[in-house]
């Protein structure tokens, strides 16, 4: 009998890891404006997960394979003249989701329901899921520790980074792979909406509270883990969907910060409008 034998304990452990990981990686997603890309990745890996569970192979493998296909498809569609990245992403997103829906309906009665994919079920996490999240999370945090400064440079001034001789293509690819890995690992466990919510809301909230890149990462990670645990607690108390509650707690944190954060909140700016404290010209 270990601590992880209780499903509530497993849910809390997963919530903390998921919140921390998505919060930290989310800073890059927010700074590089990859939210739509992350959203599309979640939908495009969906048929892979369904197919894998129909064929009886590892769902993480299926998700990864379709994630790679997704990146290639977006790249191929974007290369055509007159095509925008968001258009290509939109097409692949819609196509991936429809394919997944058809597979779910046409395949044998599978245990992976469509709704589980969309909204997840963090309370039914097993130890295998926990181990995968922990392992992938550790690798990703280590990669961010090594490449974080270069990724920060890239987010701030992409041309400048290329001009300074950094391997821009490799670094961009690395970032997309990190986002993809987070999506592939989190989506089967906690669902599309929660993955996206935790990738974006804690990081956006952290940006309202601090002006330093490093602190933004730390605050986002803590906020992510905090939202996840709080949301789980509330959902158990009121007996409502866990993933949705966590996503709402994360969003509520953002809205509250939007109002009260000292420099960028609505209240802060009201106070700031006193004469003599004009901000520097843009």
């Amino acid at each position: 009998m270990t601590w992880f034998d209780t499903y509530t304990h497993r849910a809390y452990a997963e919530a903390v890891m998921v919140g921390l990981l998505a919060g930290v990686v989310g800073v890059q997603v927010v700074l590089r404006r990859l939210a739509f890309h992350a959203m599309a990745t979640t939908h495009a890996t969906f048929p892979g997960v369904v197919l894998a569970s129909i064929l009886g192979i590892d769902i993480y493998l299926g998700g990864t394979a379709f994630g790679v296909l997704f990146s290639i498809a977006v790249l191929a569609l974007t290369r055509r003249p007159g095509r925008t990245a968001s258009g290509a992403i939109g097409v692949v997103l819609a196509a991936g989701f429809a394919l997944g829906a058809v597979l779910v309906a046409a395949g044998p009665a599978s245990d992976r329901k469509l709704s589980a994919f969309l909204v997840g079920s963090i309370v039914t996490i097993d130890t295998h899921d926990l181990a995968v999240t922990a392992a992938v999370g550790t690798v990703i945090l280590a990669l961010l520790a090594v490449f974080g400064r270069e990724l920060g440079f890239a987010a701030f001034d992409h041309d400048g980074m290329r001009a300074a001789g950094h391997p821009a293509l490799a670094l961009d690819l690395l970032l997309l792979l990190i986002v993809q890995a987070v999506v592939v690992v989190l989506t089967p466990a906690v669902g599309v909406m929660l993955t996206l919510a935790l990738l974006v809301a804690p990081a956006a909230t952290a940006r309202l509270w601090t002006d330093s890149l490093r602190r933004t990462g730390v605050v986002a990670g803590l906020l992510g883990a905090g939202s996840a645990v709080t949301g789980l607690e509330l959902s158990r108390h009121y007996d409502v969907a866990a993933g949705a509650t966590i996503a709402l707690v994360a969003a509520a944190g953002f809205v509250v910060s939007l109002l009260v954060s000292p420099r960028h909140g609505a209240l802060g700016r009201l106070l700031d409008r006193r004469p003599g404290t004009a901000t520097a010209p843009a």
Binding site: L31, V146, F147, R149, E150, G152, F153, A155, F156, D157, G160, M161, A164, G165, H166, R207, T210, D211, S212, L213, R215, T216, A282
Partner: peptide, 23 residues
């Protein structure tokens, strides 16, 4: 460049030395 980006002037200048510093 994005004026809201969370970096100080010193950190921006340090970016120039990133290649010398290494990973």
């Amino acid at each position: 460049l994005d004026p809201e980006f969370p970096v100080t002037a010193r950190q921006v200048v340090m970016m120039g030395r990133l290649r010398l510093i290494g990973r």
